[in-house]
Design a protein around this nucleic acid. Structure first.
Length: 619
DNA sequence: ACTTTCACG
DNA sequence: ACGTACGTGAAAGTG
């Protein structure tokens, strides 16, 4: 057994690395004698892509505030002692486990060491969840530090705790590896590797010693349980994965890449060597006599889609307007950028993330944004183009099955009506009215047009988000004076909403700079952006509506059909013959009859074999 | 590392 | 004193 010593917060800690079968027995003895204490665990792996061919768990660590055990389990290492069975035994029997960002480690040991995910998860407390409840701000937000183990340890455990990740990257480079290759290549007994692996669990145990009582003291006990349950459902969705149509996606990627090349060649003829270089584009456009007035935050000339589309005589749906001669460079830049983004961010990302059964396991972060919203990454399946089916067509149901969705109808506006108690808005919802059309009628009278409805939809969202007349005018494309009039009319029609927003803001102005959601979540506000209060409240509450729905779906045994949560909807896959029935069950489980006086109703859509079929692709 | 852009709800 | 659209993930260029 190798023993390494270190100091954390001025106290000596010890890291033991298992080398012999005798060490394995000593580890199991240690587990037994610490059975009743919370034990932090962690894994070191070959990479982040748990389901990729060649992925391996290399180390599994267990530890308390003072002591860590590091066990090598890498199947490719030809180990003298094989502690896999002991690791499994520990993971299956220790009653009280801790982990930071537990989902990753739990999925890794479930997929590669044969540990049962559900029974393991029931015994885990995730310190990242605790940290998010206590402060959901990201590292970029004013006053925020994020939920990383490093910044949390620095704040709550030891300001001089080592940055183990950065330290390892430096070691990788020294050994001739890179950030990416180092994780798989570093020797299992590299002293820095084992030391840092051990320190991570010691830090997690110490972090819990601080955050655990804070969570209880803040009254977050139930919310914490709720979040752990939601995280498990999301982890199971992730583990199941979503089937990729590889042949289609490969053809699509090649086609998009060729398209990007063609349009890049056109841009090159106008002196733009890269369509991703804004300075080149603005210089070339100005050389062609175009007048560019919009600037970015840092003062550079803006050449985003909003600027380029009018120059190319295209509307927001890329239809020819006929107002001017299309600028061929603007047109080429737009098309090249779209094609290459779709190729790299979506098609290639999907292909590179598939497992041996052609399934995609995106990283579902069930508790991510400041508002607790979920995020999905690698690949970003919540952000696929919705105006065109070609990308979504890549994801498909298993043979004999179809893809469907259930989404909430105008959930953010309904949540706003519920929270504000606005009488008029609540009544309109109860009457089953189209809220945006109803608003249009209130403002423009019974003769309102489809255009008026659109303006009102924009204003409705803009109000929720706290936008002013200028932004709303730009966003909706409606003239400023009309928007201003509509805002006035909106405030008159929905006086309760206006009162509610004002109340949230003035409370924050004079009292604590936060909003408290009905779920009991305390969301800090940036002092310069108190107007975001209503948005945080509504967005966060809508998120919790979906999160609670996921738990109801799980209770009813419907998790196996789920493929993705997408903010206000779930994507599911079911056998074609049962899809309607299963879809209805999902609808029923998600619907809320009385959410603070407002019904939250759902829409069901059943498509064909692919996700794209719900966006216009042939079934 | 930072900026810019673009995809979604 | 004033008015501010919110929340994400990802790629690529620049320095």
């Amino acid at each position: 057994m190798r023993v390494q010593h270190y100091r954390i917060a001025g106290e000596p800690v010890i890291v033991r690395s298992v080398e012999t079968s005798e060490d394995v027995r000593a580890f199991l003895d240690w587990c037994r004698s610490n059975h009743n204490r919370p034990i932090a665990f962690d894994t070191e792996t070959t990479g982040l892509d748990i389901y990729a061919a060649g992925f391996r768990v290399r180390l599994v660590q267990f530890g308390t505030e003072r002591e860590a055990w590091v066990l090598p389990v890498d199947s490719a290492a030809g180990l003298v002692c094989a502690p896999q069975a002991a690791v499994r035994e520990a993971l299956e029997s220790l009653p009280y486990l801790l982990a930071h960002n537990a989902k990753f480690d739990a999925l890794a040991v479930a997929a590669h060491l044969g540990v049962d995910l559900v029974s393991l998860w029931r015994r885990i407390t995730d310190t990242r969840i605790l940290a998010h409840l206590l402060d959901p701000r990201g590292p970029q937000d004013p006053g925020g530090i994020g939920q990383g183990l490093k910044p949390l340890s620095a704040r709550h455990v030891d300001p001089d705790a080592p940055d183990t990740q950065a330290g390892l990257y430096a070691e990788f480079r020294k050994l001739g590896h890179t950030k990416e290759t180092g994780w798989a290549a570093i020797d299992l007994d590299n002293p820095l590797y084992t030391l840092y692996a051990g320190l991570d669990v010691i830090l997690t145990a110490r972090l819990f010693a601080v955050l655990g009582p804070l969570v209880e003291f803040a009254g977050y006990g139930r919310l914490s349980e709720f979040e752990h349950a939601v995280a498990l459902v999301c982890a199971r969705i992730e583990a199941r994965g979503f089937l990729l149509d590889v042949e289609y996606t490969e053809t699509l990627a090649a086609r998009l890449l060729a398209e990007a090349d063609e349009w890049s060649a056109v841009a090159r003829r106008f002196g733009v060597s890269s369509v991703n270089a804004p300075a080149q584009i603005s210089a070339a456009l100005e050389g062609m006599g175009e007048n560019l007035s919009e600037t970015t935050e840092s003062g550079a000339i803006k050449v985003d889609k909003e600027v380029l589309l009018p120059l190319a005589d295209l509307d927001r749906k890329w239809q020819r307007i006929g107002a001017r001669e299309a600028n061929p460079l603007a047109d080429a830049v737009l098309r090249a950028k779209r094609a290459s983004k779709w190729a790299t961010s979506y098609a290639d990302a999907m292909l590179s993330r598939r497992d041996t059964r052609d399934r995609i396991h995106p990283d579902i972060a069930s508790l991510q944004a400041r508002t607790a919203r979920m995020s999905i990454s690698r690949p970003p399946l919540q952000q696929l183009p919705s105006g065109d089916w070609v990308i979504r067509r890549a994801m498909q149901a298993e043979p004999g099955c179809v893809v469907g969705t259930v989404d909430y109808q105008a959930v953010e506006l309904r949540v706003l009506a519920a929270l504000s108690g606005d009488v008029q808005m609540t009544a309109a919802i109860h009457a089953g009215k189209d809220l945006h059309a109803f608003t249009a009628e209130l403002i423009y009278g019974p003769g309102f047009t489809e255009y008026h409805r659109k303006v009102c939809k924009g204003i409705g969202f803009g109000k929720v988000y706290g936008g002013g007349p200028d932004t709303l005018s730009r966003q909706t494309g409606a003239p400023l004076d009309q928007v201003k009039a509509a805002i006035r009319a909106y405030d008159r029609a929905y006086a309760g909403v206006r009162r509610y927003s004002k109340r949230l803001q003035s409370r924050a102005e004079w009292g604590v700079k936060e909003v408290v959601t009905p779920a009991g979540r305390r969301l800090p506000l940036d002092r310069k952006r108190l107007y975001a209060a209503t948005n945080y409240m509504v967005q966060s509450t809508a998120r919790d509506v979906l999160a609670e729905a996921l738990l109801r779906l799980d209770e009813r045994g419907l998790t196996e059909f789920l493929r993705l949560p997408v903010h206000d909807e779930v994507v599911f896959v079911a056998p074609a013959d049962d899809a309607k029935e299963i879809g209805r069950e999902i609808q029923t489980a998600m619907a809320v009859d009385d959410f603070f006086g407002v019904p939250l109703t759902t829409d069901l859509e059943i498509g064909g074999r692919t996700w794209g079929s719900l966006y216009g692709a042939a079934a």
